[in-house]
């Protein structure tokens, strides 16, 4: 059973990578043009000195550093963009799964860094972070569920019984996109159990 929204998100994600790559090529050629033709910020024609010193001056020229900085900026911008934002259908998928299982009264906030913060109507809250894995795994789209800090004696038992592990008084688990629905439910239930048996 493949989810339509997920398939769409996957395709869109690939498209976005392609668009980013082509944009990179265009911007790169433009920067290259600006720095290495005479005229705009172009490379100078005359360097004082002879032989090696002249060569070194060309290497250390403003243009080379300018190009390096420009490329670094482009890479940084792309990294930031892919760290911060989810493809539209993917965040729509996440939102609708969460809304579907937690009901209309749960407050779901999406924030930068592919994060979601969920506050249930009973005041309990947890966060989930989405990551798009590419290397080494077959799963391309996974979530990290993490509850808020809880205080109770037998938290570990409650965590294990709901398929979570306990780290620093929080319930945590990595779940795949097809588990999101049910394991979110279990997380909410585990948090209620943990706070009820105080």
């Amino acid at each position: 059973m493949e989810n339509e929204l997920l398939l769409e998100a996957k395709a869109l994600y690939k498209d976005r990578i392609r668009i980013a790559l082509s944009a990179f090529i265009i911007v790169f050629s433009f920067t290259f043009f600006v720095y290495y033709t005479t005229g705009i910020a172009g490379i100078g024609e005359h360097y004082p000195g002879h032989g090696i010193t002249q060569g070194l001056q060309v290497v250390a020229a403003f243009n080379n550093f300018g190009l390096l900085v420009a490329v670094a900026l482009m890479v940084f911008a792309f990294r930031f963009w892919s760290w911060a934002f989810l493809p539209g259908p993917a965040s729509l998928f996440t939102m609708s799964v969460l809304k579907g299982i937690l009901g209309p009264y749960a407050l779901i906030q999406q924030s930068i860094g592919k994060r979601f913060k969920v506050t249930l109507d009973n005041g309990l809250s947890f966060s989930l972070r989405c990551s798009i894995e590419e290397k080494g795994t077959d799963e391309w789209f996974t979530y990290r569920l993490m509850s808020n800090k809880l205080q109770n004696g037998n938290l570990r038992d409650v965590a294990l019984r709901h398929g979570f592990s306990l780290k620093g008084n929080r319930f945590v688990a990595s779940v795949s996109n097809d588990e999101l629905h049910h394991r979110t439910l279990l997380l909410a239930k585990a948090m209620i159990v943990a706070t009820a048996s105080l």
Binding site: G136, D138, L160, S165, V172, S174
Partner: peptide, 14 residues
């Protein structure tokens, strides 16, 4: 990939 994506998560949750 089974190890990285699945087994390591199962191990994390004990």
């Amino acid at each position: 990939s089974l190890y990285r994506g699945v087994i390591s998560h199962l191990q994390e949750n004990e």
